[in-house]
Design a protein around this nucleic acid. Structure first.
Length: 232
DNA sequence: GCGACAG
DNA sequence: ATCTTGTCGC
């Protein structure tokens, strides 16, 4: 049952069948581990994706940082032809191939990955952070910049404020204000990390900016922002 | 049928 | 996400 998760997905091919992709997500979501399955952190990574050629090429970036100093150790950039369009709820099928390629190019395997996007805070509890975690086997945390699904009460405007993200009677994540006066981020379990730990780690990985440092690096490189490219 | 909708 | 012009603050 669970042993089929990895191999099933590797064989997945996008044919335009939205229903088939959704069914696969529902099956794979049962394989996601929602509790801590790691011992210690030596280094963590940030993962993000960007596009080239007006979307024809998918460019994935994984930046590895030392923990808990958050100094950049190394990074990898991988490019692959884009095989499917962006469809809300199916983002992981579009981004995971390039992310896995980038992961394979690293010389040091991170102990945990902060992903740009939702984990189980997803209609079928299988966002990109969970999908990538399952495929790589690595612990992952989903950090979304906006909401995909779920509801929550208004959030206090001070740094560290947080409130549960609820969907169909289930707590699927937490809305966290990483900095006063800025939009909150949506933290959720990706794989092998529980929610309390995920929120705590996001807080510890954030240094004055809205997003945690690992994701800032991956995003800065994926978006080719001069301020980041200069520091490489 | 209508509105919502990660990146 | 990407494109793109303009503005605000340190």
């Amino acid at each position: 049952m669970t042993i089929l998760c990895g191999s099933d997905e590797q064989a997945f091919k996008w044919t335009g069948d939205v229903s088939a992709a959704r069914s696969l997500q529902t099956r794979l979501s049962a394989c996601v581990i929602r509790e801590n399955r790691w011992s210690s952190l030596q280094c963590v990574a940030g993962a993000d994706v960007g596009f080239e050629e007006r979307g024809a090429i998918t460019r994935a970036v994984i930046a590895v940082l030392q923990w808990p100093t958050l100094f950049l150790i190394e990074y990898a950039v991988a490019r692959l032809p884009t095989t499917m369009p962006y469809i809300p709820g199916l983002l992981s099928f579009r981004e995971c191939p390039a992310l896995l390629k980038a992961l394979g190019q690293l010389s040091v395997m991170p102990d945990l990955v902060f992903c740009d996007g939702q984990g189980i805070a997803h209609p079928r509890r299988f966002g990109v952070a969970s999908h990538f975690g399952l495929l790589s086997g690595l612990p992952t945390i989903g950090v979304g910049k906006s909401r995909l699904c779920g509801e929550h009460v208004e959030l206090d405007d001070y740094e560290g404020a947080s409130t549960p993200l609820l969907d169909r009677g289930e707590c699927i994540g937490r809305v966290l204000r990483t900095r006063a006066h800025v939009k909150p981020v949506y933290v959720s379990i990706g794989h092998k990390v529980d929610l309390d730990t995920a929120e705590q780690l996001v807080g510890e990985a954030t240094r004055g900016c809205r997003l945690p440092e690992p994701i800032r690096w991956a995003d800065g490189i994926a978006s080719r922002r001069p301020s980041f490219m200069k520091r490489l």
